[in-house]
């Protein structure tokens, strides 16, 4: 009965959108919405929110199917997208491992500047979190002291060697001259859970990943790695205020495989622009400390990717690829 109903709904949707779509490109089969990270993490939450909004607002005649490909710090997803060159029915939600993973794994054979840029949905931020049971740690100084006295017994959780959090962890190791043990988990959500369960000592999660645990009093932020304090965290100092020169952001852009047809690119760009401008998305950005002023797209986004790639190459050369991969 419900199958019939869906068929009727989708038929109705088609009937409504068909005249407007005349001569324009539209997906003819379900669109694979690849997430280059595990379930429950920041990228995953965003992709699933967007997927739901696409359905809710009837922006596509065919559904977007979210698929997580977290393997090898996003290598699996990047390789997958590369192999899909010319396919108009796959797009990917990316994060900074979009730049770092191909740099660290030269033999992957992926050049992200060949991918088709669609839209930069947001810039995400990072905070340093510890379990709220840690009464001895209340600020950056006491944190550094605790890490130094624990040495390699200090366990930092993250989402994989080469992922942005491992880059940030390596940056902190360089700045504070300590070494920690970095343990990779399959997604930001799992990292958050392991912090709350005291399986790890600290992590640099995005706000969305820790928000609920923080509100419940299970974890606490110590520092934010932004230029200015975020409205969502007015009482947490930035690293720069404390005299530590670390500022790091995470891009959250949607990209297609190489050689996508221009008509398809236009369709996806318009679709994500509409999502970007929606009340729901802007509301999400505000509550989760994301920066979403204008959506970068097309040539501008391609330029952005190229600059970011170079910046990450420099960053990795500075801290050393070995300190990121832990080899």
């Amino acid at each position: 009965m419900s199958i019939l109903k869906t068929m009727m709904t989708s038929a109705a949707v088609l009937a409504v959108t068909a005249p407007a779509a005349f001569a324009e490109w539209q997906p003819r089969k379900p669109v694979e919405f690849i997430i280059m990270a595990g379930t429950g993490g920041g990228a995953d939450q965003i992709a699933r929110l967007l997927q739901g909004l696409i359905e809710k607002k009837d922006l596509s005649p065919r559904p977007f199917i979210p698929i997580n490909k977290p393997g090898g710090s996003g290598a699996e997803a990047l390789r997958y997208l590369q192999d899909k060159a010319g396919d108009n029915h796959v797009v990917m939600m990316t994060l900074n491992s979009f730049y770092t993973t191909p740099i660290i794994q030269e033999d992957l054979g992926v050049d992200v500047t060949e991918f088709t840029p669609i839209g930069l949905m947001a810039m995400d931020t990072f905070l340093l979190w510890v379990n709220s049971d840690r009464d001895d740690i209340n600020d950056l100084d006491s944190y550094v002291e605790a890490v130094k006295s624990a040495g390699l017994d200090w366990k930092v959780g993250g989402t994989g060697s080469g992922q942005e959090d491992s880059v940030l962890t390596a940056m902190m190791e360089a700045a504070f001259e300590y070494d920690v043990t970095y343990i990779p988990f399959p997604g930001g959500g799992t990292v958050a859970k392991n912090l709350v369960g005291n399986q790890i000592d600290s992590t640099v999660n995005n706000p969305a990943e820790q928000m609920e645990f923080w509100r419940a009093g299970n974890s606490k932020p110590l520092v934010q790695f932004t230029a200015e304090r975020m409205p969502a965290f007015p009482d947490v100092p930035t690293a720069k205020e404390l005299g530590v020169d670390i500022e790091y952001y995470m891009q959250r852009s949607v990209n297609g495989p190489p050689n996508m047809d221009p008509e398809a690119v236009e369709f996806y760009t318009n679709l994500f622009q509409e999502l970007f401008d929606s009340e729901e998305w802007q509301g999400f950005c505000e509550s989760d400390g994301l920066t979403c002023d204008t959506m970068m797209k097309g040539e501008e986004l391609a330029q952005f990717h190229a600059t970011q790639k170079v910046a990450h190459e420099k960053l990795i050369a500075q801290v050393g690829a070995a300190s990121i991969t832990g080899e």
Binding site: S73, G74, G160, S161
Partner: peptide, 8 residues
């Protein structure tokens, strides 16, 4: 892909 290092 290797789960930890991410290499094939």
């Amino acid at each position: 892909f290797d789960i930890i290092s991410g290499r094939p």
